[in-house]
C-alpha cells in the first residue's frame, strides 16, 4: 500500500485517489492557434524527474496538487490549489 497525503483528509491509501496528470497552463482561448491547442491537449510533461500533477480524493471529490518524482515514485509534497507558496 502506498500513502498519499491529502491536504484535506490526511494520509490515505493511494487507491482512494485518481490521477489527473501533469499541471499545464491553459492557452489563451481567444489568441491560441490550432497548433498551440494541440500541444496543450496532447503533449503532457513526461520528463524523467519531478512533476506537479492534479489528483482527486475520490470519496470526498477534493482536487489538489502533488509534487512527485516519476522515476522513484516519491511524493515530495501535496497542497491545495491556491495555497502554493
Amino acid at each position: 500500500m502506498k500513502l498519499l497525503d491529502c491536504p484535506m483528509n490526511g494520509p490515505r491509501n493511494i487507491d482512494e485517489f485518481q490521477s489527473f496528470g501533469p499541471l499545464r497552463q491553459a492557452p489563451d482561448a481567444d489568441a491560441a492557434a490550432d497548433a498551440e491547442w494541440a500541444r496543450h491537449l496532447f503533449r503532457a510533461d513526461n520528463r524523467k524527474g519531478v512533476v506537479v500533477e492534479w489528483w482527486r480524493h475520490v470519496p470526498s471529490n477534493f482536487f489538489f496538487l502533488a509534487q512527485r518524482d516519476v522515476v522513484t515514485n516519491e511524493i515530495i509534497r501535496t497542497y491545495a490549489p491556491g495555497s502554493r507558496p
Partner: peptide
C-alpha cells in the same frame, strides 16, 4: 497502472 511512472516495479494492489 493508474498513474504515470518510469519504473518496472510491481504492486501488490
Amino acid at each position: 497502472d493508474p498513474y504515470q511512472l518510469y519504473s518496472t516495479r510491481s504492486t501488490l494492489d
